[in-house]
């Protein structure tokens, strides 16, 4: 009798426990389906959305972002997407074809479910005059924003806003995800000490307006703030003022951030293999200015850089210009670290 009572008590307790467990677990909402044009955007979306989102990238890390290999499965993903993210600024010219072809009204340009990750972000290389006298320069500026860690945060912010727009009920989650990512990013860029002293917001604003270096000369408790610098900016400090050649004009945001002095490009005109005279000019320039390093994206044609290396001894450094382009760049923050480390290695060899 006693045993029976005990057993039934135990049972009742177990049942209650199970019910409690069930109530604690909310009914899982379907994950937000996000399609991003590029792996770096997909990574930012994952960082912000965590396990509330399911992210597909149309491009691959090893691919030139100007191109993408379309497959029906990717089209299918766009067709079902709740949110579509592209950089914009005419970088992914194929995106409009994808959107047209998929015919998904929720993610069409100008609709709620479409995000231009570049929106509102200060850009460089905007043509000075908008008259097309000098030819047809791209009016929106250089779109390769993601090699600047500070701008990565701004892009993540735009993505977060988009997620909030299509899923207002989960706004809190996305906001928290963004704030946590921004914090990780700030720590990675400036190091913990400066972030604690100044806060990421101020640091990012100063970095974007180009005033960070002069600001950091200010003193705090007898020491200049720059002595407390950590993170990428400290790691990349030896790069400041060093001369460099790049293959293609997609590094302006990186070189501006870390103070590299860009002396020229292997490509005479963007997208066109250099002429013989340009190659000769480059060789002379490399020798005269003692330029030690030539940075290329992993997908750039390496025949001309290698020829330059043979004849002048310049170090060719292949750089991951996209998340997933190399093994040391699995996500956006490690991509920036990989860029810096590879260049530092290049200079130490050169």
């Amino acid at each position: 009798m006693k045993d029976k009572a005990r057993v039934s008590l135990l049972l009742a307790w177990a049942v209650l426990g199970l019910v409690g467990l069930g109530m604690g677990q909310q009914v899982p909402r379907p994950k937000l389906r996000v399609v991003a044009t590029l792996p770096v955007l997909a990574d930012l979306a994952r960082q912000v959305g965590g396990d509330h989102v399911q992210v597909v990238s149309l491009g691959k890390g090893q691919e030139d972002p100007h191109y993408v290999t379309p497959t029906p499965s990717l089209m299918q993903a766009v067709r079902r997407a709740d949110l579509f993210i592209e950089v914009g600024m005419s970088l992914e010219m194929w995106a409009v074809n994808v959107l047209d072809g998929a015919g998904n009204k929720r993610v069409r340009r100008e609709s709620k479910g479409h995000v231009y990750a570049s929106e509102g972000i200060p850009v460089l290389e905007v043509p000075v005059s908008m008259t097309r006298a000098k030819g047809d320069l791209h009016p929106n500026g250089n779109p390769h924003l993601w090699v600047d860690p500070v701008r990565l945060g701004l892009m993540a912010r735009n993505i977060e806003k988009g997620m909030e727009r299509v899923r207002p009920s989960e706004a809190r989650w996305f906001q928290e995800g963004y704030v946590a990512f921004q914090k990780r990013l700030d720590l990675a860029i400036y190091g913990p000490e400066l972030v604690k002293l100044l806060g990421g917001k101020v640091l990012n604003r100063l970095a974007l307006s180009g005033k960070l270096q002069s600001f950091l000369k200010r003193k705090y408790k007898g020491k200049p703030l720059s002595a407390r610098l950590g993170g990428f900016l400290k790691l990349a400090a030896p790069l400041r003022g060093r001369k460099i050649l790049f293959y293609h004009q997609n590094w302006i945001y990186f070189s501006t951030r870390f103070g590299l002095e860009v002396r020229g490009f292997v490509e005479d005109k963007p997208g066109i293999t250099p002429s013989a005279s340009h190659k000769l000019k480059l060789m002379e320039q490399i020798k005269a200015e003692k330029i030690k390093v030539l940075g290329t994206a992993t997908w750039n044609d390496d025949s001309v850089p290698n020829a330059l290396a043979r004849e002048t001894g310049i170090q060719v450094v292949p750089l991951p210009a996209m998340v997933g382009a190399t093994k040391d760049a699995p996500d956006s923050i490690s991509m920036i670290r990989a860029l810096i480390t590879r260049l530092l290695n290049g200079y130490s060899k050169g």
């Binding site: 460089l124 320069l137 500026g141 180009g210």
Partner: peptide, 19 residues
């Protein structure tokens, strides 16, 4: 997808961001 590489145009102004 072969032989593809190119990018932005612009010998544009380098330097401070143009807000």
């Amino acid at each position: 997808n072969t032989g593809s590489r190119t990018g932005t145009a612009g010998e544009g102004v380098q330097g401070t961001p143009s807000h």
